[in-house]
Design a protein around this nucleic acid. Structure first.
Lengths: 211, 211
DNA sequence: AAAAATCTACCTGAAAACCGTTACAAAAAT
DNA sequence: ATTTTTGTAACGGTTTTCAGGTAGATTTTT
């Protein structure tokens, strides 16, 4: 009963090829097609329909979430499973809004892909354990008072100069403000980002690709 | 002629499992063992030797490059292939310094893994096309002033703790050495890496995927 | 066995970062 | 129009880092 047709879109060819190899061994899967870009995926769907699209969230040219939005509005019967390295809730929520039926973490077990496919084919949804737990906590408002941290524009300027190895004095000269002001900003940023040293600030900035 | 034993270390279980599935189909590969952390890998090697270690560069708890350094100094006959999403030269060079015999990009074709394994088993090296080209360009470039910097094992330990926001005192306690010694190491690292602040050290480490 | 590299440790002094707090003007949001 | 946020600035004091040495013990390499 090889009935299901699957398309995988991930710019990490190596990963999608290996994944395809695994899926092709499953007896309920008819075929697996591999794309490396969103554009390629969109084009492919215009000539051929695939029951399930497995989309990587983090792709170079276009986010998998945007792609999911495009596909889900265009093809009613499509089922979409997102694939991601990170488990931040915001991304998950956006994926759901974009029409995703499932969300898998790359650090989950390979068998989850199989399970997810079975589930979404049956019209259900599938989320990696970590994700479903987080979604639940969020709905029950157990989501610890994690107020969103917003760095102000000026603070960001100063943060970027700190990351550039500028000292307080150099920053004050660059921005034509007092050294005291720079220190105040630094302290405020540290409070907001919950860091205690400049090293922490650098990590914060880099992890969020603020520079 | 199933002779080669392979170990894969990647915190993306899904990827390593799929990759393992592919490799197990190859007739020259005897077995494939999967690890999800650097610690697990180090422990496994203490009880069993694997001819080839395929290591992901960007892992949560410890950089694959640091792991490569540990393994290559401990096991003379080991061959190491790095796996990475990014192709920046600094990271590649750092991998080579750490003892890697190959460097594969995740957006390369799956067959490259097979080729890379054959090559490193024969005592040769293998780099994805994009990488080898960049390395070549770099070598032809008149980058005479850029002598390669070699951080010692101890210095690397200290560097990683600095990046973890540890203060001198905490580092000295962690490693059971004097604060003075830690400062000496820090100064030496700064001289070698041509940086003037801890922030610079963090950038140095991050740019080379050392953490 | 000798030479080189690495790891260890100490010293002094200067510079920079960190901590807690207050305060006011300008700009934005309600 | 008024409350809130943002940007500015200051004070005093503590801790940590940075700079430039010297130097002996232990590994590793040659």
């Amino acid at each position: 009963m090889k009935t299901v047709k699957i398309l995988i879109c991930d710019d990490h060819t190596m990963v999608s090829q290996a994944l395809a190899g695994f899926l092709e061994q499953q007896n309920f899967i008819k075929s697996v097609y591999i794309c490396t870009t969103a554009a390629e995926t969109i084009k492919k769907y215009e000539t051929e329909f695939y029951d399930i699209a497995i989309l990587d969230v983090n792709m170079e040219e276009m986010s998998g979430i945007v792609l999911a939005g495009i596909l889900s509005t265009k093809y009613e019967n499509i089922k979409i499973i997102m694939l991601s390295m990170r488990s931040d809730l915001l991304t998950v929520k956006e994926s759901i809004k974009a029409g995703a039926n499932g969300y898998l973490l790359k650090n989950a077990d390979l068998s989850e892909v199989k399970n997810a496919i079975s589930r979404v084919i049956d019209g259900k949804s599938y989320f990696s354990k970590q994700i479903s737990q987080a979604l639940l906590d969020d709905q029950l408002n157990l989501n610890s008072d994690k107020e969103e941290v917003f760095i102000t524009p000026r603070e960001r300027e100063i943060l970027l100069l700190i990351v550039k190895e500028y000292h307080t004095k150099q920053i004050s000269e660059t921005l034509n403000i007092s050294e005291n002001t720079v220190e105040t900003h630094r302290k405020n940023i540290m409070k907001k980002t919950n860091t205690k040293t400049s090293v922490g600030l650098v990590r914060y900035a880099i992890e969020r690709s603020l520079f």
